[in-house]
Amino acid sequence: MSDARKSDARKINPWLKAALEFGPLILFFLVFSRFRDHVVSFGGRDYSGFILATLVFIPVLVASTLALWRLTGKLAPMQLATLVLVVVFGGLSVWLNDPKFFKMKPTLIYLLFAGLLGISLALGRNWLQLVMSEALPMRAEGWRILTIRMVALFLGLALANELVWRLMSETAWVNFKTFGLPAIMVAFFVLNARLFERYALPRDQ
C-alpha cells in the first residue's frame, strides 16, 4: 500500500466506530422490545411496535453512516448497500404499514453480495481482496478460498433469514437479526483464522 493511501485512511476510536456501526441496530432492538405489544397512532394511522422501531432505525442509520464517512473518509461497499436497502425497504414497510419489506432486506443484501462475489470469481477478479486486503493481507489463493466460503455463507444467511421471518415470530426475527446474524459473522471469521495464518503474506509485504 502506498504512503498516499496510508495517509488517506483516517483512524477513529474503535469504541466510537463500534457504537456508530452497531448503535442503530441496538436502538431498533430496544424500541421494538419496549413497544412490541403496543399500537402507536401517528398521522391518523395505527402502527405496530415493529413499524415504530423501523421508523426510528432509518434516520439513525443514515446519521451514523454519514458520521462514519465524515470521520473515516470512506465507507465499505456493504455499508453503502445496507444503507440504500434500509432506506428503500424500511421506507416501504413504514409507508405501506407492512413489516415484511424490512424483514426481506437482509435476504436481499446477502444475495446481492453472494452474487457479486460469485461474479468476481467467474471474471478472475477477486473484489473481496480489493476491499479487504488492507485488513487481511493474504496470497491470492487464500482470497479465492475465502471468497468461495463467503459466497456459501451469504447464501446460507439469506436462506436462514427467509426461514426465520416466514416461519417464526416477529420477536424471534428481531433477536435473530440483532444478535444471531452478527454472531454468525464473527464466528465465521474466527473459524477461518487458520486460513488467514496459512496464506498470510510475509510481514515485509
Rank of each mutant, 00 (worst) to 15 (best):
I184S: 07
M132Y: 10
V88Y: 08
L112K: 08
M185T: 06
P202M: 06
M78T: 07
S93Y: 07
T72W: 00
S7V: 12
L111S: 08
L85W: 04
F189E: 03
M104H: 01
G124H: 03
F176I: 02
L96I: 05
S41E: 15
R36E: 15
S133M: 00
T82D: 00
Q205Y: 04
D98L: 13
L159N: 01
A4F: 08
V94G: 09
L75R: 00
L146Y: 03
E170Y: 09
N175M: 11
I26T: 15
A18K: 13
F35R: 09
A135K: 02
V39E: 14
T178P: 06
M1A: 09
P182H: 10
I12H: 11
L111T: 07
A152W: 04
A81N: 03
M138K: 01
G23L: 14
S2T: 14
W69F: 09
F113K: 03
L153D: 01
M138N: 01
M1H: 04
Y110D: 12
V94A: 12
L130C: 02
A183K: 13
I109F: 09
H38C: 09
D204E: 14
G91F: 07
P14D: 10
P99N: 10
K6Q: 14
L83I: 07
A158P: 05
R144G: 03
F196Q: 12
S169M: 11
R36I: 10
L117Q: 11
S64T: 13
Q79N: 01
L163G: 05
G44Q: 14
L92V: 07
L121S: 12
D8A: 13
